[in-house]
Simulated scan of single mutants.
Amino acid sequence: MKAARTEFESQFERARVEFEEANERLNARSGRNLIMATLIGLAIGAVVLGSLLFWKWAFIAFAVPLCLMGAFEFARALQAAGRRIDLTAQFAAGAAMLGAAFVGYLTHWFVIFAAVVLVVVWRLVAQMAAGDGRKYGDVVNDVLAGALIQLYVVFHGSLALVLLRQDHGELWLLAVLIIAVSVDTGAYASGVAIGRHPMAPRISPNKTWEGFAGAVVASLVAGGLLGVLMLQIPLWAGLALGVAVLVSATVGDLGESLIKRDLGIKDMSSFLPGHGGVLDRLDSILPSLVPGLALYILLNPLSALS
C-alpha cells in the first residue's frame, strides 16, 4: 500500500507538472490566463442567460454598471495617456443617455446629442478655469477624447437597452451576444490552433486570417441556428444576422486594438482576471448592437414570434 501510494503521488505530481507546462505554453500563445478567463466567462454568461431568459428587466442591473465601468476604464486609460477627461461629466452624461434608452427614439437621440454637448462644454469651461496655457491642439484632443467615450461606449451600450424594451427584444439581444461571443471564440480557437498568417500585424499581431476563417464559420453556424430555432426567422435571415455581427465584431475588436496600441497599453484595465478590463470584453459586442437593432427592425416582422 505504501508503494502504491508513492506511485500514485508520483504520477499525480508528474501530471500536475505536465498540465502546468502545457497551460503556460497555451497562455503564452494566447496572451491570457485561459482557465481564469474561461471561469469568468462562464459566470458572466450564466448571469446574462438567466436575466434575459427568465426576467429580462434584471439585465438592466447588469448592463448599466458594466457600461459605466467600461466608460470609466476608457477615461482612466486616456487620462494616463495625458488626456484631460472630466469623470463627473462623463458619468452624468452616460447615466442620462442610458436612462433615455427607455423613453423613446426621438428623446434618446436628443439626449445623445445633449450628453456629448455636456462633455464638450464641461471640458472647455474647465480648461478656461484652469488657465494653464495648455496648447490648442491638446485641448481639441481632450474634447474629442471625451466625446469618443460617450459615442463609443455609452451610446453603443444604450442600444442594448433600446433593443431590450422591444417585443421579444431580449431574444434578439441574446442572439447578438451569443453570435459576437461565437465570433471571438471561433477566431481565438482557430488562431491558437492553426494561426499562421497575421491579419493586421500593425494593429493586433495575434490576429490571423486562419482565426478570421474560424470566426466566419462560427458566426454562420450560430446565426443560422439561433435565427431558426430561437428567433424563428428564415434561415437566410439568420445567416444575414450572423454575417452582420461578424463584420461589426471584427471591426470593433480591431478598432479597440488600434486604440490600445495608440495609448501604448495591452489592456484597458485588470478588472477581469484573464480578460483584462470590462471594455476588453465589450470591444466586439458594443458595435454589434448597431446591426442587431437595425436587423431587428427589418427582420422581426418575418418572425413567427410576432
Rank of each mutant, 00 (worst) to 15 (best):
L49N: 13
F62H: 10
P287Y: 13
P273K: 03
R25C: 02
T6H: 12
L53V: 09
R84E: 05
I194W: 15
F19M: 09
S182P: 02
S306C: 01
A147N: 12
I40S: 11
I35F: 13
M97G: 05
W172G: 01
A115L: 05
G131S: 07
V221G: 13
V153G: 08
P291Q: 07
V181C: 03
L68I: 04
S288V: 06
S288I: 02
L226W: 07
E21V: 12
A61F: 08
A4Q: 15
V125D: 04
N206S: 09
L52R: 06
V181Y: 13
L258G: 15
V162G: 06
T250C: 01
T6D: 09
F8W: 14
A114R: 05
M97P: 04
R196P: 00
A180Q: 10
L53M: 14
K135M: 03
G133Y: 08
M268A: 02
L151E: 11
V111M: 08
P301I: 03
S158E: 05
R25M: 09
D184N: 10
S269Y: 05
N27M: 07
L106T: 14
D262S: 07
A3K: 13
A304H: 10
V162C: 09
V116C: 08
R261T: 04
V48S: 08
V119W: 01
L298Q: 07
V278A: 12
G146L: 00
G169H: 15
A304R: 14
I85K: 09
W209A: 03
T38H: 05
F91L: 00
S51K: 02
A175E: 09
L295Y: 09
L66D: 05
E170V: 03
V245E: 12
S182F: 09
G214T: 13
L226F: 07
L173H: 11
G276H: 07
V278S: 11
G276P: 00
Y105G: 06
